[in-house]
Amino acid sequence: MDFVDIIFVVFALIVVVSAFIVVFSRSIIRSAFSLLFTFFGVAGLYVLLNADFLAVTQVLIYVGGILILILFGVMLTTNVVSVEIKTGTLQTVPAAVIVAVLSGTIAGIFWFTEWHTAPAREGPTTKALGTLFMTDYLLPFEIASILLLVALIGAAMIARHERGTEGGR
């Protein structure tokens, strides 16, 4: 086992163990915090695949954005209703059936697909990604930007509206 293999095993273990905690933990905030390690482990795996830009984006978007949003959501709701949100087991039999079917499907896909593997490409990816965004994938890129802009304006409108009614009372 060389150095890169050991690092891979470490990151893979981090991802798998923390993902288990996310799923099986009783307290939802513990799940949210162990999601942090899952995201970081996945970013590490991206680095090992030479996808440097993707790895950093993963940390920036998922840890810096989405995870903090989740934590805010959980913390604020817990403190308002002063009930600790727990995850429990309900509907055991249908859940077991669906899980069995799903995991069977995934295992089937995993075994019967012919995976195309190629050695990871060396060198920086940022410039190539930028060029592709501005040439071949310009339309999807612009549509995604407009979608985000609409969401942004929508969020601002909702926030404004609530403050307006409070002031009117």
Binding site: D52, V56, I68
Partner: peptide
């Protein structure tokens, strides 16, 4: 690494998570 400054911006978000963790 050739994404140096981008990495710097990204990892600083870990501090926020740590602060939230400690405070909560």
């Amino acid at each position: 690494i050739n994404v140096g400054i981008f990495y710097f911006v990204a990892v600083s978000s870990l501090v926020v998570v740590g602060i939230l963790m400690g405070a909560w």
